[in-house]
Design a protein around this nucleic acid. Structure first.
Lengths: 105, 105
DNA sequence: TTGACAGGTAGGCAGCCTCCTACGTATCTT
DNA sequence: AAGATACGTAGGAGGCTGCCTACCTGTCAA
């Protein structure tokens, strides 16, 4: 669908998933985010760059801080990508249910 | 949640996403799947192994063929992972709507 | 049983990813 | 103006990925 469905690649790293999870509680500056990891701050910055390039976060400058914020659009696209598969696994559940019903006879 | 949320890593490859998309139409043997790609069949086999290890597909032997089938569970987990973010982007939409309403005054 | 077919595995190579430290730049404080 | 703070970027090392060709195993057909 969209040009950069590299959202998957961006979220393939546990570190970056953790970053997005932290941003669920609201926008945060880099040092705040970096404090949750044992790796160096520049490495966290690099991960943030990947998330930025995927459109998953945006930055907003505030003095010498850069406040990172979660961006909804790519996640919505991910959800849409998942849609055809949702139908698939709901069928699975339906099949299971009819199977159980038959056993109840 | 689950031990192997490497579902993201498995889906990070466009080739593997294409494979799962092909399997949406139903189970298929390896050669059938491989015929949709320009890369060698062994490479497709390797991609299938990654999908297998992530639990995204299962194989069922039928004579000398191995029929691959999509597995629903990891996709459901992916959907569940997405849930908190869904709330997030719905709020975004709500904010946008109230903003538009205010403009209508 | 011998050959053809389906598909996995081994081994190797090239490119990418992730981490590091060192350094550069902009902003705030004093 | 000088130092401290917040952050990005450069460059490099090591490991992982993705592709290839060659080869192996198991099954079917003649």
């Amino acid at each position: 669908m969209s040009a950069d469905l590299d959202v998957f690649a961006a979220l393939a790293s546990p570190v970056r998933r953790e970053l997005t999870a932290l941003l669920l509680d609201g926008p945060r500056p880099v040092n705040d985010l970096a404090s949750h990891f044992t790796m160096s701050r520049p490495s966290v910055s690099e991960h943030l760059k990947v998330l930025r390039d995927a459109g998953l976060v945006s930055e907003q400058r505030n003095g010498r801080q850069r406040i990172y914020q979660l961006e909804a659009a790519p996640l919505r696209e991910l959800s849409e990508w998942l849609h055809p598969y949702e139908r698939f696994w709901l069928e699975k559940l339906a099949n299971l249910r009819t199977l159980l019903d038959e056993e109840d006879l």
